[in-house]
Amino acid sequence: MTSPTSDAPVRIRDAAPADVPAMAAIYDEQVLTSVATFETELRGRSYLGEKLATAGAGNLVLVACAAERVLGYAFSGPFRPRPAYAGTRELSVYLSSEARGRGLGRALYAELLGRLDALPEIHTQVAVVALPNDASEALHAAMGFERVGVLREVGYKLGRYVDTAWYQRMSPRGQV
C-alpha cells in the first residue's frame, strides 16, 4: 500500500512516544469536527500518552506511517475495569483527513486483529460507532464484526444527540 499523499509505502508498526504529537493532531481534529469521539475538549497528547504507557498484554497501539509521517493509528484497550472482562478488548481506529477512504483503516485493523487473535487470553473485541457513519460500519462488517445493538441518543455533540452502534467480533480460536 502506498501513502495517499505520496508514493512512499505505508508501514504499520507499534507506536512510539515520538508518534504521540502526530496521533494527537489526528485525534484532536476529530474532537473538534466529528462525533467519531465523544470527547469535547482537546486532550489528545495526554489521552494517547496514557494509551501508549499501558501498551502490552492485549493493549496494543499501532501507527500507519509513510515516510515516517503518521497517517493514522489503531488501538485496543480494556473494555471495562472488572476482572471478568479481561478477555475483551475495545478497539478504535483514527485516520488523518487525507488518509480516509483509501483502505488504511482496514489495513490497521487487519494488523491489530491479527495480533489480538494470536493472544490466547483475548476472546472477543468490541467497537462503538457513532451514527450515522456508513464507512465505519462497512469497515467493521468487513473485518468480521457483527452489529449487536444500538444505544439511542447517548451522546450530545456538535449541537445534536447521537446514537451509537455496538459491534462485536469473536476470536477465531473460540474459548479462552
Results as ranks from 00 to 15, higher is better:
1 M>T: 05
1 M>G: 06
4 P>F: 01
4 P>L: 01
10 V>G: 00
10 V>R: 01
11 R>T: 13
12 I>P: 00
14 D>E: 11
15 A>G: 13
16 A>K: 09
19 D>T: 04
22 A>F: 00
23 M>N: 02
25 A>Y: 02
26 I>M: 05
28 D>K: 01
29 E>Q: 12
30 Q>E: 15
33 T>E: 12
34 S>W: 01
34 S>Q: 07
35 V>F: 10
38 F>W: 14
40 T>F: 05
42 L>I: 10
43 R>F: 08
44 G>M: 08
45 R>H: 11
46 S>H: 12
46 S>T: 15
46 S>V: 09
48 L>R: 03
51 K>P: 01
54 T>M: 14
54 T>W: 13
56 G>P: 09
57 A>Q: 14
58 G>F: 10
60 L>K: 00
63 V>R: 04
63 V>Y: 02
66 A>S: 04
68 E>R: 11
69 R>N: 05
69 R>F: 01
69 R>H: 08
69 R>Q: 13
73 Y>V: 03
76 S>W: 01
82 R>I: 10
85 Y>H: 14
85 Y>E: 06
86 A>S: 13
86 A>R: 14
88 T>M: 10
88 T>W: 09
91 L>Q: 05
95 L>C: 08
96 S>E: 06
97 S>R: 15
100 R>G: 06
100 R>L: 12
102 R>D: 05
104 L>S: 01
104 L>N: 00
104 L>F: 07
104 L>H: 01
105 G>W: 00
106 R>D: 02
106 R>Q: 08
107 A>C: 06
108 L>S: 01
110 A>L: 12
111 E>H: 08
113 L>C: 10
114 G>F: 08
114 G>L: 08
115 R>W: 03
116 L>D: 02
116 L>V: 11
117 D>C: 07
117 D>W: 03
120 P>Q: 08
121 E>I: 04
122 I>N: 02
123 H>Q: 14
124 T>M: 10
124 T>H: 08
126 V>F: 06
126 V>E: 05
126 V>D: 02
126 V>R: 03
128 V>C: 13
128 V>M: 12
129 V>N: 00
130 A>H: 06
131 L>M: 15
131 L>G: 12
132 P>E: 05
135 A>S: 15
137 E>F: 01
137 E>W: 03
139 L>A: 06
139 L>C: 10
139 L>R: 00
142 A>C: 09
142 A>G: 13
143 M>K: 01
146 E>A: 13
147 R>C: 14
147 R>N: 02
149 G>T: 10
152 R>D: 09
153 E>G: 09
154 V>F: 11
155 G>N: 07
157 K>C: 10
157 K>W: 05
159 G>E: 11
162 V>C: 11
163 D>R: 00
165 A>D: 04
168 Q>M: 12
168 Q>L: 13
170 M>F: 11
170 M>Q: 14
173 R>C: 07
173 R>S: 14
174 G>F: 08
175 Q>F: 15
